[in-house]
């Protein structure tokens, strides 16, 4: 799956999880906190992405994911390792 697909998947799932919130345009550089997504909602988004992509992000990496690009990178790493 290409990087663009992961970004687009994040965009879709984030809007489902944060329904009712008016999220701004999401880019790879977007800081998750600046999007108004808190760490708990981020875990929900990541859980859905993990299920859909059949990957598992190691827990110790979760706290340091700051941007949407960080999530994309770590998912790509895990898919590469799979």
């Amino acid at each position: 799956m290409s990087e663009v697909d992961i970004l687009s998947m994040f965009n879709t799932i984030a809007r489902q999880v944060e329904k009712g919130k008016d999220l701004p345009t999401i880019t790879r550089e977007s800081k998750i906190t600046a999007l108004g997504i808190d760490s708990v909602s981020m875990m929900e988004i990541i859980g859905v992405m993990e299920d859909e992509l059949d990957v598992s992000i190691p827990d110790e990496k979760l706290a340091r994911l700051q941007t949407v690009g960080d999530i994309e990178t770590v998912i790509r790493e895990q898919r590469g390792n799979a």
């Binding site: 808190d38 708990v40 875990m43 859980g47 827990d59 706290a63």
Partner: peptide, 15 residues
């Protein structure tokens, strides 16, 4: 902190 739950109902409790 060890494993992080992913299910919505668990995350709502953690929130």
């Amino acid at each position: 902190r060890c494993n992080v739950p992913r299910k919505k109902e668990d995350l709502d409790d953690l929130r």
